[in-house]
Amino acid sequence: MKRVFSSVLTSIICALAGSQAALAVTYTLPPAGGRLIGQNQSYIVPDNGKNLESIAAKFNTSILLLLEANNTVDPYLPKPGSEVIIPSQMLLPDTPHEGIVINLAELRLYYYPPGQNRVEVYPIGIGQLGRETPEMVTRVSQKIPNPTWTPTANMRARSLAQGITLPAVVPAGPNNPLGRYALRLEQGGGEYLIHGTNVSRSVGMRVSSGCIRLRAADIKTLFSQTSWGTRVQIVNQPVKFSVEPDGRRYVEIHQPLSTSTADNPQTMPVAINAGFARFIDHPNSDKGQVDRALVRRAGYPVQVNKGASVSPSTALLQNVKRTENKKEISEGALISDSVNSSVQ
């Protein structure tokens, strides 16, 4: 997912219409030792005149991830009858399966309901360049329904420099930038919130002043399940990798977060820690496949077993749910059927 946008991509995203309401995607946790969850899907674009952002909202994913997986699709008006890959398969971040986990690099929030064998996954918006969301381990210190928004002195000064005078307080309601619900985090003196937004298209982008944004339906769901003291861990893991219990080896590479306007997230170095180095050097890993995934940085899992001969694009299509006759379901088509993904 792009972190520094070209003017063309920025204009595309900003021109897209507001998202539809969406709910979290829930996945069963993998077997012990595994990290792979979900199943990629294929969607047949209906003739309804809606754009790619509406499809992203329907499947509760990021518009930028859809653009990565479908780089020939028109984001303004996808062609009716064409197939769009929904990359809803992923590797869990390398963290405890507890509370709320936010991976900044992939613009996703994971929530592990206590005592349940499942995880809920939400797309998020995070802090923009220069006002980054920090990594931390903290907890929810306050639940705030119908929050008011009080811009900080720095926010007011930055806006004034742009010729915009912010009000001292924005009351609760549909025009409130915090949406209808907010979770205050303990660390940082309560400065950081997980909250809703009145600009749905900002979800899946780096746009906030450091807080974490969710779509309206998503923050409502998350708010209803969390309690005071819920553990929150924020990490920055652009590289995720796993050896599954059946021996399949996966890497999932996201573009690293840019730290300056001069950075190009598609080419800037990706940190390789000792664990990932050992994974790459293992006799069962195909270094060529790993290298291609590191260059592509597509944001979805790629199988890299030696001898599998799977390219990143083929790896995505291998894991798409399909039916033999591709029968359409409702307004679009979720193509479902199992695909042989055995390891050679």
Rank of each mutant, 00 (worst) to 15 (best):
G189R: 14
R180N: 10
K240P: 15
Q89D: 03
F223K: 08
L294T: 02
A217W: 08
S209F: 14
E83A: 05
L64C: 03
V343N: 10
A315E: 08
R248T: 04
N117G: 04
G81Q: 09
R139E: 11
V137P: 04
S338Y: 12
A172N: 13
N146A: 09
L185G: 02
R249K: 14
A182W: 05
Q237W: 05
N325W: 13
G189K: 12
A217G: 14
N146M: 08
P283M: 00
I212L: 09
N198R: 06
G38I: 05
L222K: 06
G49A: 01
R139H: 12
P87N: 02
L64I: 04
V320N: 01
A32W: 04
S6F: 15
I86E: 04
Q116E: 13
A333W: 14
V25R: 09
I12A: 03
L193H: 07
P167S: 01
S54V: 09
S19M: 13
G18D: 12
A293W: 01
P30Q: 00
G173P: 04
V203P: 02
L316T: 06
S330A: 08
P145Y: 00
S313Y: 08
L185N: 03
G127S: 02
P113A: 02
P167D: 00
E186S: 12
N48F: 06
T95M: 04
A21L: 11
V199Y: 06
I234S: 01
L36A: 05
S54K: 14
Q162K: 15
F276Y: 11
Q318C: 03
N70V: 02
K287T: 07
R292I: 01
G204S: 00
R3S: 07
D47H: 14
E328A: 11
V343T: 11
L77C: 07
Q20S: 12
G229Q: 12
V251M: 03
M155C: 02
V137G: 00
Y76L: 04
N264L: 03
D286H: 12
L183F: 06
R296M: 05
G81A: 03
G34I: 06
K2D: 10
Y76K: 07
A17Y: 11
P78A: 00
K50F: 13
A24G: 07
L193G: 04
T230K: 07
L66P: 04
V170S: 03
D291K: 15
P301L: 00
A172Q: 10
